[in-house]
């Protein structure tokens, strides 16, 4: 599709929170995402599942703009994210545009990536103070409220090295939320955790689903959790959406052969 065929803005009556439009990503000869089309509506919780290497992480990283895009456009809230309008057509976004555009999106990583030289509270305050320019007192109040929400308020002055994996991940969630994103991305946030602390992190995500009108996109290998909290499940296979559907229906009655195989293989592994 020609670049000029992509709208500069999505029409009022057709504005999902996120729209992947023919998004292609390749590394050299390897095509990781192939003409991906995916809409996520406001407040929706979408879970991405699929075999290793199917492109799940890549989808999230493209939306966070951590990876450059090789084809297509991603729109967020009706506006282009990966591109910016110039002389009536979309051109690849520059650093300035990207910085503003991605501020609506927060991300949590498999390995937490807390800043080790800052306490839990400082980690949470960093974005609000340095990026949003909030006064310290306001950033602190906001951060403490979020640390309270994730159950980490009594550890707020600890450095990450003194926290368990589950605790670090909860701080990382609070840190991302402190930027007041409209979209949250979770990439296997429980995969690096000991089994007995997975619950403390999934409970926080459950809370977010119930109490906030965040739009969320999550990659997970925990099928039970995905089934519980997702509105929709997308099954990725070799860089394409092989099958997607409402969570309960997807798990009880998968249509495609590959989906069935994948689900039974995961079940067998559990």
């Amino acid at each position: 599709m020609e670049m000029s065929a992509y709208p500069l803005e999505l029409p009022e009556d057709d504005r999902p929170m996120v729209r992947f439009m023919n998004v292609t990503k390749s590394y050299g000869a390897l095509t990781v995402l192939d003409q991906l089309n995916l809409d996520i509506t406001r407040g929706e919780m979408v879970t991405v599942i699929g075999p290793s290497g199917s492109g799940k992480t890549t989808v999230l990283r493209m939306l966070m703009t951590l990876e450059t895009i090789n084809g297509g456009v991603i729109y967020v809230d009706g506006k282009p994210l990966t591109h910016m309008p110039k002389n009536g057509v979309l051109v690849p976004a520059n650093e300035r545009y990207l910085r503003k555009a991605r501020s609506m999106i927060g991300m949590c990583f498999q390995h937490f990536n807390l800043f080790p030289h800052m306490t839990a509270l400082q980690n949470c305050m960093e974005g609000p103070v340095q990026v949003l320019g909030l006064p310290k007192a306001e950033a602190r109040a906001r951060s403490e409220e979020l640390l309270e929400m994730v159950g980490m308020i009594d550890k707020k002055d600890q450095y990450p090295s003194r926290l368990s994996g589950g605790q670090q991940q909860r701080v990382a969630i609070a840190r991302a939320l402190a930027m007041r994103p409209k979209i949250m991305l979770f990439d296997e946030v429980t995969s690096a955790l000991d089994p007995e602390v997975i619950g403390e992190v999934t409970n926080v995500i459950r809370k977010l689903v119930n109490e906030h009108d965040l739009t969320m996109l999550m990659v997970t290998h925990q099928m039970g959790f995905a089934r519980d909290i997702s509105d929709r499940v997308c099954f990725f296979y070799q860089g394409r959406i092989e099958e997607q559907g409402e969570a309960e229906a997807f798990f009880t009655n998968p249509q495609r052969e590959r989906t069935k195989q994948f689900l039974s293989a995961v079940k067998a592994a559990d």
Binding site: F109, N113, F115, G127, V131
Partner: peptide, 8 residues
């Protein structure tokens, strides 16, 4: 990446 994701 974490700093990038905070729009720094």
């Amino acid at each position: 990446e974490a700093a990038y994701a905070l729009s720094m």
